[in-house]
Nucleic acid binder design. Structure first.
Lengths: 229, 229
DNA sequence: AAACAGTACATTGTCGACAATTGCAATCGG
DNA sequence: CCGATTGCAATTGTCGACAATGTACTGTTT
């Protein structure tokens, strides 16, 4: 997944950083269940590090919005709720819409070509019905456009803060969403707009795309109500 | 300033939290100059706390985007540059536009009335030519709309992460921006749209307003080029 | 004189121990 | 039998000391 490599630019040099990446992966991939309370002594001994380093790592996880802390009480992994997911979609609609507009203005020709290539990969894997890879390709697609905006702060806010949450939810709802053909079609329109350097259209199409994803997710979640808080 | 009170809901109970708020205020109000490197032993003894607590506070400052850290090298206060400011305006355009749309849909009648009252305060202080209060009122205005969106994550991202930066820049460029009358007019249109519950129009107007502020800031900064990195 | 190497200093990262606060449980009183 | 209160255990917050890394200075070499 080329997705993650470019996100965190610096490789972890300090113990707390390595621990942070380990824990983040563990949370995103569900090894640590959602909503679980973090016991500092327990985790510290489990990973063989000091409590101080662990606390520093937890602080970084808090920035990624993957854990919440209350003073004198402790830290716990975030839970997932439908309303939270809808909130995230709304924010993505606004920010990725802007990202698409900026990408249409600022992407280099080579970057646009790479984007078109990602889309091609998407089509191939739809025909082969590779469901997991489709999700990775989807992330790569959105990630490439975000990077194409060239707005460093927008990139950081989306890739570091928000997309960890997206992956968190996506993992726990995986294979429930079978909207790939429709998504591919919408992606195709977006890339075309970017190729024409039509920022206004790219933003409109991206917002439409994310809103459609949100509506689909809401309908899917309502039809299978085994969501625990 | 009612602005800050509602932002950080919990009062600081732990030492690191108090230290964090102290340092944040010191940075935002320019007591600590922009770009300055933070010496952990120095600051720790200056505030009479341990280095551990200070490091925790610095971690929180990093989340607010007010300091940047490099491993084994240290932390420094962020610098300010025109391009960074333009990036922030772009993000605000997207997110606050969405906030205005949601506010038009979700604000209670009482909240709308309060918003109209803030606008009235704005008008009074323009006529009295109270320049500082105008900036506070402006923050209150935008903050109220953001809160009116009822999207908790959007509120957190804007009020905690982005608006610290806004205040950081605003303090250092204060009284250079004399756009109050125009801003008041635009604010007025936005409130009217919200009162009519016209989300689409509220978003359009808010985006226009922020874009106009950005253009004005850019022009002002270009005409007085004493911006040090 | 400029550049490199080595050493000494300062700063950051890491750790284990102590203090303060919270949550639970058992006991006491109604 | 139920509720409140007090005491205990566990967890978090805080601190000072040690180790590792980066930095500046000096002395030597080309």
């Amino acid at each position: 997944m080329a997705f993650l490599a470019a996100c965190k630019l610096q490789e972890p040099v300090t113990i707390a950083d390595k621990l942070f990446l380990d824990l983040r992966r563990a949370i995103l991939e569900g090894e640590i269940p959602a909503g679980k309370k973090i016991s500092e002594p327990e985790l510290a001994s489990a990973y063989g590090v000091s409590r101080g380093s662990l606390r520093e790592a937890i602080g970084k996880l808090e920035n990624c919005n993957l854990v919440t802390r209350k003073p004198n009480i402790g830290a716990r992994i975030i839970g997932f709720s439908t309303s939270q997911l809808m909130e995230i979609y709304q924010i993505r609609e606004a920010m990725e819409g802007m990202a698409a507009r900026l990408a249409a203005e600022h992407m280099t020709e080579e970057e646009v070509a790479r984007l078109r290539h990602i889309l091609e990969r998407h089509r191939v894997e739809i025909e082969a019905k590779q469901e997991y890879s489709q999700q990775d390709v989807d992330l790569d697609f959105h990630f490439s456009i975000i990077q194409g905006s060239k707005n460093m702060r927008l990139i950081r806010m989306l890739c570091q803060d928000l997309y960890d949450l997206v992956r968190f939810y996506r993992f726990r709802l995986k294979s429930g969403f079978n909207r790939s053909e429709q998504a591919y079609h919408e992606h195709n329109l977006i890339v075309s707009a970017i190729e024409r350097r039509d920022g206004e259209m790219a933003e409109t199409l991206m917002r439409h795309h994310i809103r459609a994803s949100r509506d689909y997710a809401r309908k899917t979640l309502e039809s299978m109500p085994q969501t625990e808080a």
